[in-house]
Design a protein around this nucleic acid. Structure first.
Length: 227
DNA sequence: GAATGATCATGC
DNA sequence: GCATGATCATTC
């Protein structure tokens, strides 16, 4: 078995690829792909995501679009514990901190990215050696009306605060399902934003993240439906 | 123990 | 610096 060299032809091709790696360990998949296995992720935080991208035939790169543009599908690996619950929040995308003309929830990057996601659960407990961690069964998900509504509410609330110059008052506690948190190489990275008096200020870049309770519900529902 | 805020690698 | 891939580690 070897990683594909071309993107999946269609959705069933993508799902078939996902099924083919389910149950395999990171070590097995890395050896077959000819890539090195880190001992831990302290300096290799995106390693698992890139391993799965490779095996599903996603185009590597830093495009602000979906992983499979032709299929309209975004890929997300999600680390889970032994009970199948998420160990980490899920990064969605960067947040514009300056007003975007004509911006709206409907046109937002959050909505675009989350319109259809292939969730690939992976074993993520730190006590498990990286090479022994296994890939789980992928879940193809599109938000329900209720989920869409929650996301829209949070996006609107957070976006309103940003536009109103309240960025420095926003913490991860805002939002029911979506949070805003720093997203940068380190604390010295700064970008432009709107200050309290409407003036231009410098602040740390922020990104949207999905709360664990939200992704847990997605995985649980998918698992429940398979029973 | 969990969550928040901070950080790491990479390409351009 | 922006954007991808996220997890780390200090704080609560």
């Amino acid at each position: 078995m070897q990683p594909p060299v071309t993107p999946p032809d269609d959705l069933s091709d993508l799902l078939s690829r996902a099924r083919s790696i389910a149950g395999w360990s990171f070590g097995e998949l890395a050896i077959m792909a000819g890539i090195e296995i880190p001992k831990h992720f302290k300096r290799h935080k995106g390693w698992t995501g890139q391993l799965i991208e490779l095996w599903l035939g996603a185009t590597a790169g830093s495009k602000p679009q979906q992983d499979f543009p032709e299929l309209g599908v975004e890929l997300k690996t999600i680390p889970i514990d032994a009970a199948g619950n998420p160990l980490e929040t899920t990064y969605v995308c960067y947040t514009p901190l300056l007003p975007v003309p004509g911006s709206s929830w409907q046109r937002s990057n959050v909505r675009n990215k989350l319109s259809c996601v292939l969730w690939v659960p992976v074993e993520g407990e730190r006590t498990l050696a990286v090479e022994h961690r296994r890939v789980g069964s992928a879940v193809l998900w599109s938000p329900t009306e209720e989920e869409l509504s929650l996301l829209e509410q949070d996006w609107n609330e957070l976006n309103d605060l940003i536009i109103a110059g309240q960025i420095e008052r926003i913490t991860s506690r805002h939002g029911q399902v979506l949070q805003l948190r720093p997203k940068a190489a380190n604390g010295r990275v700064l970008t432009d934003a709107i200050g309290e008096e409407g003036q231009r200020i410098k602040t740390r870049p922020r990104g949207y993240y999905l709360r664990k309770t939200f992704t847990q519900a997605i995985l649980h529902r998918a698992f429940y439906q398979q029973e």
